[in-house]
């Protein structure tokens, strides 16, 4: 039965794929930063039909202690798939595939993080694939890097990634599940767009050298595009906070003068400060794209206050 399905046209001669995309089209991607309350940083990614949650805890004390490193933090990544994320129920225990992906995702995230700032500690990155539809490891690494940024960990860059593959002899980007299973090759890739360094590269299936190099050349602009979406998602998250804070402050100010007694002045002051800070940040963000580390560090300070604000 599977063999008959295989005959469905994956890509037509004019380069249209089974879901209507062109060769170099990636599926629709939506990032949502800061979706989990308890985590220090979190991100939900909707990439086509992939739904993946990444949560970051830390930097925090590392146990067991013998794993602590005197000069840097450990980046510990765990990639897991929910039992219901795939057509046939996955056994809940982590399988070998998940453990391999956990390892390479950790290795892909590490170059992006200033790990020497947190000696003897750990930055735990937990990735849960809620629904899988091809290319989940690239989606996971994108989401994880946003979650780390959301946790306020200084980073030198975000990690943006995408997969390429071969369909009927043509190099295409971002295979979905159908294409991944029926296609001839899969090449997951992740990249630090600012420093132009490749942090994740795997391949299976058959590529000629020419196809392989072509795929690499196609992946770079795609990754940059995803990078922009990641930046927008981060900016969006923090401009949203700024707006909310301003709103709340405005509300408090007006009744405070007319009806209410004095709110504690100290608290108000701190809020004002926070307000000032936040006002500056979005502008700074746009101007200083490169110093994402510092920028994000700044945000960390604002986010807990924002949470307090909500309550």
């Amino acid at each position: 039965m599977a063999k008959e399905k295989e005959k469905t046209v994956l890509i037509t001669k004019d380069g249209t794929r089974h879901d209507g995309r062109k060769k170099e089209d990636i599926r629709e991607i939506k990032f949502e930063v800061g979706v989990l309350d308890r985590a220090d940083g979190s991100c939900l990614i909707n990439w086509g039909r992939n739904k993946i949650l990444a949560a970051v805890y830390g930097p925090r004390e590392l146990h067991p202690k013998h794993m602590q490193m005197p000069d840097k933090a450990l980046i510990r990544c765990e990639y897991r798939m929910a039992t219901f994320s795939v057509p046939e129920r996955k056994r809940p225990a982590p399988n070998r595939r998940e453990r391999e992906i956990s390892k390479i995702l950790g290795e892909a995230l590490k170059p992006a993080v200033f790990d020497y700032l947190y000696p003897r500690s750990v930055i735990d990155v937990f990735i849960e694939v809620i629904q899988a539809d091809g290319g989940s490891r690239c989606a996971a690494v994108c989401a994880a890097s946003l979650a780390i940024a959301d946790a306020g960990v200084p980073m030198k860059d975000l990690v943006a990634g995408c997969a390429a593959g071969i369909l009927d002899g043509q190099v295409v980007l971002d295979l979905d599940d159908v294409e991944d299973k029926e296609g001839d090759g899969d090449l997951p890739f992740a990249y630090l767009p600012h420093t132009e360094e490749v942090v994740l590269l795997q391949s299976d299936g058959i590529f000629s050298q020419k196809e392989y190099k072509e795929a690499l050349d196609m992946l770079i602009p795609a990754s940059k595009k995803i990078y922009q979406m990641q930046r927008d998602a981060l900016t969006n998250r923090y401009s949203r906070i700024t707006e909310k804070v301003i709103e709340t402050l405005d509300k408090e100010k007006t009744p405070a003068k007319s009806k209410e007694k004095k709110t504690e002045p100290a608290k108000k002051d701190s809020k004002k400060k926070a307000d000032d800070k936040k006002d500056k940040e979005p502008a700074a963000e746009k101007a200083e794209k490169k110093k994402s580390g510092k920028r994000i560090l700044g945000k960390k300070k604002t986010s807990p206050k924002e949470k307090a604000e909500k309550k």
Partner: peptide
């Protein structure tokens, strides 16, 4: 493979490669 096609890739460890380096490595 014998036909000079790439059938598997794996990047490992915490460092990075540039795309040019990768292409050279392939050669």
């Amino acid at each position: 493979r014998d036909d000079d096609k790439i059938c598997a890739t794996q990047k490992g460890e915490n460092g990075t490669f540039t795309v040019d380096e990768l292409k050279k490595c392939i050669d």
